[in-house]
Simulated assay, not measured.
Amino acid sequence: MNKMKFSASYALMLVFALCLSHAYASDAPKTGTMPELVACLSDDNAPFSSSNGGGIDAEMSRRLGEFLHRPVRISWIAIPERGGLGRALRMAMKPGNCDLFFGIPVNGTANEDVLEQHLETSEPYLSTGYVLVAAKGSNVRTLDDAQRAQRVGVVTATPADMYLHKQRFNRIPYGNNRDLLDALSEGAVNAAVLWLPALASAEQRGFELWPNAIRDEHLPSPELETRFVIAMRSGEADLKANLNVALAHLRSDGSLDSILRRHGIARTHVQ
C-alpha cells in the first residue's frame, strides 16, 4: 500500500516537473529551429525606414523577431513612381519573397492597395499625423488662431491641405516639406500644419526648431491621422495572431516608446 502511494506521488511529481520544464522551455529563446522571417521595408521613407539609417520599422522588425524567436532578414524595397505601394506589394508579397511588409498607412478603416492584393494586416502599431507649428515671433497659439492668420503653410495635395481648404484657412501650398520648413524659418507664413514624421526626419538631418515652435501636437480631426500596420499574405492565421501578441508586448513593456523617442515621434504610439 505504501509502495503504491509512493509510486502515485512520484508520478504526480514527474508530471508536474515535466509541465514546469515545458513552461520554461516555451519562454526561452529558440535558436536554429525557427524559420527566417523576411521583413520588407521601404528603402527611402525616413523616419520609418531608410536603407542608409534603419528607422522605426527596422528596429521594430528586429524586436518582433526577438519576441517571436525567429531570425529576421530585412529586404529593402524601392517604391516605384509608377504603381506606387500597390505595385511594390504585388511584387514583394509573392510566395518566397516577403513574409511581412512594414509601414502600410491606413486612413479610415483600410488600405486600398492591401485590399486589392488580398493581404492580411496586423493591428496598428503606430498612429501619427500633423502638428501645428508657429513661425518665429508668430502669435499663433492654437488652430483657431491659425484659422484667423493671414498665411498658413501646408504641403499641397495632402490630407492637411484638403482639411485647411474645407475649413477655409488662408492656406499657402508648398510643393514639399523642405520648402514648407524653409518658409516657416524665414517667416513667409505665420504657421504651418506639418506632417510630424517629416519634421522628425528633418530634425534628424540637422534642422533645428526654434523654442515653442510646436503649438499643437494633436490636431482634432480623424482626417489628419494615419495609422500604420504590417501586411502579410492571407491564410497565415498563426503568424498574424503571434504578431499581434508581440506588438501588444512591445507596447506594454515600453520597447515601442523607446524606439519612437529615438526617432522623434514618441507621442504617436497606439494605445
Rank of each mutant, 00 (worst) to 15 (best):
F6D: 14
Y10M: 15
Y10E: 10
F16D: 00
A17E: 02
H22L: 04
A25H: 13
S26F: 06
S26K: 08
A28W: 11
T33P: 01
P35I: 12
E36Q: 15
A39I: 11
S42R: 08
S42A: 15
A46I: 01
P47D: 03
S51L: 08
G54F: 08
D57V: 09
R63W: 05
L64M: 06
L68D: 01
P71H: 00
P71D: 00
I74P: 05
S75V: 15
W76P: 04
I77S: 01
G83T: 11
G84I: 07
L89P: 04
G96N: 09
F102W: 13
I104V: 15
I104C: 11
I104W: 03
P105T: 14
P105M: 01
P105I: 13
V106N: 08
N107D: 07
N111E: 03
V114D: 01
T121V: 15
S122F: 06
E123V: 12
A134M: 03
N139F: 09
N139D: 10
R141F: 03
L143W: 10
D145T: 14
A149G: 07
V154T: 07
A160M: 04
A160F: 02
D161W: 15
D161E: 01
L164E: 00
H165L: 14
N170T: 12
N170L: 06
P173W: 02
Y174C: 04
Y174N: 05
N176F: 05
D179R: 12
S185Q: 14
E186T: 11
A188M: 08
A188I: 13
A188W: 09
L194K: 01
L194Q: 05
A198S: 15
A200Q: 08
A200Y: 09
A202L: 03
P211R: 00
I214S: 00
I214D: 00
R215K: 14
P220Q: 04
L224E: 06
F228T: 13
I230E: 05
A241T: 15
H249G: 00
S258G: 10
L260H: 01
R261I: 12
V270E: 07
